[in-house]
């Protein structure tokens, strides 16, 4: 972590990636690190491909992460995982939620959704961690907790003290949702 830590959160507009990035930002502050988080608002949020950049480090200048410089990609959707894969470092980690959301060209039957994304990812020099976050979130009693499940998986693989993650989670989630979200986080962490 001394040379910085770059996380890319990718998904489809409306999947709720913003809370995840806010919690990650709090983690950085609690680690006494500099941090920048670059978000997407507006038109591209309407069901389009969205990306959030999270950069930790001693001093962070550009809020953007360049291709080949990401330590971990947190992908909320399969095709989006594949789309952004060139941003990952050699040997980097990609946590993939196995949910599939068809984009309009596929819906209209004009293009095919690649069926073998996990296989294609497996061929590359990287660590792939597939997660059925939707299913886990359901079993934790909150279908919307997909993001905290994925955060739990990320926490496990981050090498950052678990307590810092839990404190940061609590700082960003409303009192009444904390219990189910902690459950989802733990479920992701224990995978």
């Amino acid at each position: 972590m001394s040379k910085g830590y770059n996380i890319l959160i990718v998904g489809v507009g409306g999947q709720g990636t913003l809370l995840t990035s806010r919690i990650l930002g709090t983690v950085a502050i609690n680690l006494k690190q500099d941090v920048k988080v670059s978000e997407v608002h507006g038109m591209s949020q309407r069901g389009g491909s969205v990306v959030t950049y999270v950069k930790f480090g001693e001093t962070v200048n550009s809020p953007l992460i360049e291709a080949g410089e990401t330590d971990v990609i947190l992908a909320f959707e399969l095709l989006e995982a594949y789309r952004w894969i060139k941003y990952l470092k050699k040997g980097g980690k990609i946590i993939v939620n196995c949910q599939r959301i068809d984009p309009m060209p596929v819906i209209m039957g004009k293009q095919k959704y690649p069926e073998d994304i996990i296989d294609r990812l497996n061929e590359l020099d990287l660590q792939i961690i597939p997660v059925d976050a939707l299913c886990i979130a359901k079993s934790c009693g909150n279908i919307k907790a997909v993001n905290t499940v994925l955060l739990g998986v990320l926490a496990k693989h981050s090498g950052i003290d678990k307590k810092i993650w839990i404190d940061s989670l609590k700082e960003n989630i409303k009192e009444k949702f904390i219990e189910t979200n902690l459950k989802a986080f733990e479920a992701g962490y224990d995978l």
């Binding site: 309407r46 095709l79 789309r83 690649p114």
Partner: peptide, 15 residues
């Protein structure tokens, strides 16, 4: 700049 081949674009849509 290796464009990842044959990936369908995901333009924004009405919800």
């Amino acid at each position: 700049k290796e464009e990842t081949a044959d990936i369908p674009a995901r333009p924004p849509v009405m919800c």
